[in-house]
Design a protein around this nucleic acid. Structure first.
Lengths: 360, 360
DNA sequence: CCGCGTTACTAACACGGGTTAAAATATGCA
DNA sequence: TGCATATTTTAACCCGTGTTAGTAACGCGG
């Protein structure tokens, strides 16, 4: 049942009638070494005929490069959110890696704080660089890796840190959402955040909300702001509170779709209707946003771009290219459906840049 | 900026005052070699103090084992379905692999038929075994690997093939759904499949539907059966047709949640109400099933179990343990919500085995 | 014919750890 | 004490590739 003996570069060399070194030169296109066209062809043909694949272990041992990157997924409270976009993010990373002949090693981590899972990955020289999803600032492993100069890119940002990262432009996205409501005449716009304010993304979305209001000379009213905690339920509770305020808000920006769903249910439970009695805009555009009733107007995240961007930066770091533009904020897009009350026949997407095009 | 020189087993040996071989014996717990407790402790301490991690490349080169498994994701028309469960499947595979100190190498493949992507993974000796998601029977790479005796496990089955696989018990799941409707008095039960009948999963779900009917002495009426093609739209079209039949069905089994959503919309569009005018049961329990209106009663897939099962079988194959029980069908569960009309206060889950317990 | 630069190729060592066969040491028994 | 045997430890080679330093072949001017 066992496979036949492996084909090595020695076999290729013999078949081509040259030395092993020459084979290596040809197959790796070593710069500075000139090989006659005839020899080159002999080697390539022999390799093809023998179905030669260089042994990855031997290669990394000798070259001290693995041609692999690690993707570490840290469990976070935003599970639902992360899960919904994981396939797209993976595609983004995978495409970029594949294009440069890198492989992706996947690792999920339950408890970032104590285990040394990814330090181990690096110590064993399993990978040349690492993408860390859902980083925390109290992560000592991360600091240690940085100190050694090991290539690291974060998916999500660590405020005030100079670690390379790729993230969504949450401030801009929130502004997009709130401006949309303002432009259509709303003056009392409530906010339910996606998470407590100590979470970066939450603080940023609140900032975008505030900036949009101030730019249009509307006052930021603390009475119209509530803090969610990821869950749908928290959205429902917060909405119930906001509906008690007099006069109540005429519109709501919910800083995550899940929170928006909770708000939606709470609103309906009071016999109010969306968008007639309350205009609603969410954030994330998770897959089910278009299926709820009414379909949710929301901010779309560039999931594929996050993965691709992180991959690209990491590969640049690995190759030692100049380390500029290593912090990347990606633009979001406004997806107009029914919950905001401004759907006009076709659904429009207005990118943060201002261009509009049809979607869905 | 470069990291300090790597710690090798030689360093550990020197610090412990023994030979490199002894270090290897101790760290690998080589059977048949007895090491005095004193020496063992010296070695372990030295390794700890030096933060020694054995080099993965050197180790696989010498041992001819990579301690890595490949997970190959083939693009398939059921993208939405696969995507929704990917995180759970990954968790399943990851947990099992991690427990045995294996790593997971991820690879997505656009076009299974022509590229040699995973043959390459195997040829380069990047992995010891492979899990193939969404296999196709015309996949020549797969056959070649099998011929060589390389460990392969499929996620999804290839009918009539003896290749190891893990899949959902679609027949049982469909029976569960249809029996639920029958037990509550429905006699005219329509079926919209998830896909054209040449797809294994589609044929199996239709078989479960038919078996449930026949076992309860109801006749299988071809006029009440339509074929979907994965999409929501196809569900809507099929439903419109079924509603023209006289007399129309009083209940519907939609063999995928997405198709069920389409059917739901088509039904509502005619002014009919669910579940009053049509009882509906879906299949898959994708995350948004509980959010639609009314929340969808459906069949839950054991996503984590699929991943864990595939991982377990693959690791057994890799370790050369006896190759029995390599084809695994996992049980589904009925998740009762509102669309079937039998929700009684709390939502109940009836496992295929008959046990009931609360969920959601 | 010699010396000198190119060009085309190769011998030999390195990478770091697994593993076998043999050496060193400890133990048991008469 | 001497010798056989069990227990620990080690020297040496292997895995398959990259890479440096060096050799052979060739051309060319003097």
């Amino acid at each position: 049942m066992h496979a036949q003996r492996r084909v090595t570069s020695k076999d290729v060399a013999e078949r081509a009638g040259v030395s092993r070194t020459t084979v290596s030169f040809v197959l790796n296109d070593v710069p500075g070494v000139r090989i006659s066209e005839e020899t080159r062809q002999k080697v390539l043909r022999a390799a093809r005929e023998l179905h030669y694949y260089p042994n990855a272990a031997a290669r990394s041992l000798a070259s001290r490069k693995t041609h692999r990157i690690g993707l570490v997924l840290c469990q976070s409270p935003e599970r639902i959110f992360v899960d919904a976009f994981l396939p797209e993010v993976l595609r983004g990373i995978g495409d970029v890696a594949q294009a440069q002949e890198f492989r992706v090693l996947l690792q999920s981590v339950e408890n970032v704080a104590q285990s040394d899972t990814y330090t181990q990955l690096v110590g064993e020289k399993q990978i040349d660089g690492i993408i860390l999803s859902g980083p925390r600032s109290d992560d000592s492993q991360l600091l240690a890796l940085r100190r050694e100069g090991f290539p690291v890119v974060l998916l999500g940002q660590l405020e005030g840190s100079e670690v390379p990262f790729v993230d969504v432009d949450s401030v801009g996205g929130a502004r997009l959402a709130v401006e949309h409501l303002i432009e259509h005449g709303h003056k009392r716009i409530g906010l339910i955040t996606n998470a407590p304010p100590q979470y970066t993304a939450s603080a940023q979305r609140e900032r975008g909300y505030r900036e949009a209001l101030e730019e249009h000379n509307l006052t930021y009213d603390r009475g119209l702001v509530r803090y969610g905690d990821f869950s749908e339920e928290s959205g429902g509770r917060a909405m119930s509170e906001l509906l008690e305020v007099v006069p109540p808000p005429t519109a709501l920006f919910a800083a995550s779709d899940l929170v928006a769903f909770g708000a939606m249910e709470a609103t309906k439970a009071r016999g109010l209707r969306i968008p007639r009695d309350l205009a609603l805009v969410g954030f994330d555009d998770i897959p089910l946003a278009r299926y709820v009733d009414p379909p949710l107007t929301t901010i779309r995240l560039p999931a594929y771009g996050l993965g691709a961007g992180a991959g690209r930066i990491l590969l640049r770091l690995i190759k030692g290219e100049e380390a500029r533009d290593t912090q990347l904020l990606l633009e979001t897009g406004l997806v107009i459906r029914d919950s905001c009350g401004f759907h006009e026949g076709t659904t429009l997407e207005r990118a943060a840049g201002g261009r509009g095009r049809e979607v869905d």
